[in-house]
């Protein structure tokens, strides 16, 4: 879809999304600070406001994926999740800076050293150090924010890029540990505990619900190996796909475009988005995540774009569609099935 790399290709929708996000961020910090003004010193209020905000944003970033699976109307948010990720990393960094500038400044020991050596040994309980968890989470967020751009996606390749970006879950676990071994140990108010429990619990619930709602069709072996039975041709709606998950192989999307049936990889060449949840527009499968397009017959993006995905062979047996789960090299032409 894109052969040039621009920093961000802005659309009015992205502007609105980012505007809403930044408004939410500003409002949160303002309300938190304004309310907490009474007791604590200013720097401590800033540390707590930014820390809790980073946790909330990280929770939202991880919730968008399963939400979009559960309700497709959330899909457009996936499109802009990277901006949310970058803002989260910036808020987390500003939390860390506020801590360095307050708890670790004004000392003969340099702040970066002090932050590493001021807590006792890891094995201590109670009093297990909690700062290292936060530092590790921040490092992960920084790496993810820095590699969030399409350049890195192309440079590393979608599978590696996606694997690296899955470490967001590790970052979340580290943040929970950072709070649990830190501020929660001394908490006399329930606010933070409720936030962490609802955030982490909500995420687990959403992910389970999305996983249970897998929309893939079960692959049934046809009488003749290696073919799999997809099902009745008429059950595939026009412009849509059914997704098959053959055992031990990549998922396949079987699309209908009018009378023609074609099978291509379920994984988009961009970020491994779910092509089978996309639609046929202008004769091309359109990825629901960022709108990359692929021709049905050869899995290639229309020129001038160069992305391509694997295609698969289909066969009609009576009114049943069969699929050969062995992928053709990406971009291989396969004559569509008429049914």
């Amino acid at each position: 879809m894109s052969v040039r790399y621009t920093p961000v290709s802005w659309t009015p929708f992205k502007w609105w999304f980012d505007a809403a996000l930044l408004a939410g961020v500003a409002l949160y910090l303002w309300v938190f600070t304004w309310l907490a003004r009474g007791g604590l010193d200013e720097a401590t209020v800033a540390i707590r406001a930014r820390g809790t905000l980073a946790f909330i944003l990280l929770t939202l970033a991880l919730a968008i994926g399963p939400l979009a699976r559960l309700d497709r109307r959330f899909l457009p948010l996936l499109y802009n999740r990277r901006h949310l990720g970058v803002i989260t990393a910036l808020v987390a960094a500003s939390h860390a800076m506020a801590v360095l500038d307050w708890h670790f400044a004004y000392s003969p020991t340099p702040p970066w050293l002090a932050v590493l050596v001021s807590e006792p040994g890891v094995t201590q309980w109670p009093g297990t150090p909690f700062i290292p968890f936060g530092i590790m989470a921040l490092l992960i967020l920084a790496v993810l924010a820095a590699t969030s751009h399409d350049f890195w996606l192309a440079f590393l390749g979608p599978p590696l890029w996606k694997a690296i970006h899955m470490s967001l879950y590790l970052a979340y676990a580290l943040v929970v540990a950072h709070v649990a071994f830190g501020q929660l140990q001394a908490a006399t108010q329930p606010g933070l505990a409720v936030l962490v429990a609802l955030g982490a619990g909500g995420l687990i619930f959403l992910h389970l619900a999305a996983a249970l709602r897998g929309e893939a069709w079960t692959a049934i072996a046809a009488p003749e190996a290696p073919w799999l039975i997809v099902g009745h041709a008429r059950d595939i709606a026009d412009g849509r796909a059914v997704v098959m998950r053959p055992a031990g192989a990549e998922a396949v999307a079987v699309f209908r475009n009018g009378q023609a049936l074609s099978a291509i990889s379920h994984l988009c060449a961009h970020q491994n988005g779910p092509l089978g949840e996309g639609r046929v527009l202008d004769g091309c499968v359109t990825c629901p995540w960022h709108g990359f397009q692929y021709r049905l017959e050869d899995g290639r993006a229309p020129p001038p774009f160069t992305e391509k995905v694997a295609t698969y062979r289909l066969r009609l047996m009576g009114d049943q569609v069969w699929l050969d789960p062995r992928p053709n090299p990406p971009g291989t032409y396969v004559e569509p099935l008429r049914a």
Partner: peptide
Amino acid sequence: GGLVLGMAALGLALGSADEPG
């Protein structure tokens, strides 16, 4: 809209529920 209002509500809930000084 829900996001913006939700963030304000969270700021309100957490700011006021924060540890006293």
